[in-house]
Amino acid sequence: MHRRDLLSMGAVVLLSGCGFELRKEPEYHFKTLALTGFVPHSPLAQELRRQVQRSTVRLVEDPNRADVIIAVEREVRDKTSVATTAAGQITEWQLRLQVDYSLRTAGGEILLPRTELRLTRDMNYSESAALGKEQEELSLQKAMQVEAVGLLLRRLAAVHLAG
């Protein structure tokens, strides 16, 4: 055996002994899900659909036919300047994703009352690197979106329907 193989095996043994486990896909206790209230062509809704399609849950268009409904009341992305130079040039932005949602059944039973999900990222800015910073902003927005969907999916996994 090579030394590298022995080291790899040793790392696996150590990690398994300490209780380390990779995050698994959430297990859901319902079969169908509907998404309502998202803005048209919402990147957050698209990412949520993409992630749910990887699971055993089936997305349905008609909320009356869903076991669980995610009802989004507000979805806002914005950015504000948080630091400027003496000349008024922006040197730092704060990116925000705000989602207010609730979970309910088709029968109107509230599974999770209105919940506020707030994510922020700070980004340094330089006029001389505007194009690169635009790409960085898109990357940070995407990361927030993926994190928000992960949080929503974990909340959905905690839902247990009565009966």
Rank of each mutant, 00 (worst) to 15 (best):
residue 12 V to S: 06
residue 149 V to N: 04
residue 99 V to P: 03
residue 93 W to L: 14
residue 26 P to Y: 01
residue 103 L to Y: 11
residue 33 L to P: 05
residue 54 R to L: 15
residue 117 L to W: 07
residue 12 V to A: 12
residue 81 S to L: 06
residue 110 I to K: 09
residue 90 I to G: 05
residue 102 S to D: 14
residue 28 Y to M: 12
residue 76 V to F: 11
residue 97 L to K: 04
residue 90 I to Q: 09
residue 76 V to E: 15
residue 122 D to C: 09
residue 61 E to I: 05
residue 29 H to L: 05
residue 48 L to E: 06
residue 26 P to S: 08
residue 16 S to A: 14
residue 32 T to Y: 08
residue 56 T to C: 01
residue 83 A to G: 04
residue 17 G to M: 04
residue 128 S to V: 12
residue 21 E to R: 12
residue 52 V to L: 08
residue 158 A to P: 06
residue 133 K to S: 13
residue 74 R to K: 13
residue 161 L to K: 07
residue 76 V to I: 15
residue 131 L to I: 13
residue 153 L to S: 00
residue 143 A to G: 09
residue 145 Q to N: 11
residue 159 V to S: 07
residue 105 T to E: 14
residue 150 G to E: 10
residue 54 R to W: 03
residue 61 E to P: 03
residue 150 G to I: 00
residue 11 A to R: 07
residue 115 T to C: 00
residue 6 L to C: 05
residue 115 T to P: 00
residue 154 R to K: 10
residue 104 R to E: 15
residue 57 V to H: 01
residue 71 A to Y: 09
residue 108 G to V: 10
residue 80 T to P: 02
residue 75 E to L: 02
residue 112 L to W: 07
residue 86 A to W: 01
residue 20 F to E: 10
residue 121 R to S: 12
residue 87 A to E: 13
residue 79 K to Y: 13
residue 70 I to D: 10
residue 151 L to F: 06
residue 91 T to G: 00
residue 85 T to G: 00
residue 17 G to S: 08
residue 124 N to V: 13
residue 88 G to Y: 02
residue 73 E to K: 09
residue 13 V to M: 10
residue 116 E to D: 15
residue 78 D to P: 03
residue 85 T to F: 02
residue 39 V to Q: 13
residue 61 E to Q: 11
residue 44 L to P: 02
residue 143 A to H: 08
residue 73 E to G: 14
residue 2 H to P: 10
residue 138 L to E: 15
residue 138 L to R: 15
residue 46 Q to W: 01
residue 163 G to F: 03
residue 97 L to E: 09
residue 44 L to Y: 01
residue 83 A to V: 05
residue 138 L to D: 14
residue 8 S to L: 15
residue 33 L to K: 08
residue 136 E to L: 09
residue 137 E to A: 14
residue 71 A to M: 08
residue 135 Q to M: 11
residue 27 E to T: 15
residue 57 V to A: 08
residue 77 R to Q: 12
residue 62 D to P: 07
residue 54 R to S: 11
residue 10 G to F: 01
residue 71 A to L: 12
residue 49 R to W: 05
residue 76 V to A: 11
residue 47 E to M: 12
residue 147 E to I: 01
residue 143 A to Q: 14
residue 54 R to T: 14
residue 154 R to V: 04
residue 43 P to E: 05
residue 130 A to F: 12
residue 96 R to T: 11
residue 104 R to A: 10
residue 86 A to E: 13
residue 163 G to N: 15
residue 64 N to A: 14
residue 65 R to E: 14
residue 25 E to S: 13
residue 134 E to R: 08
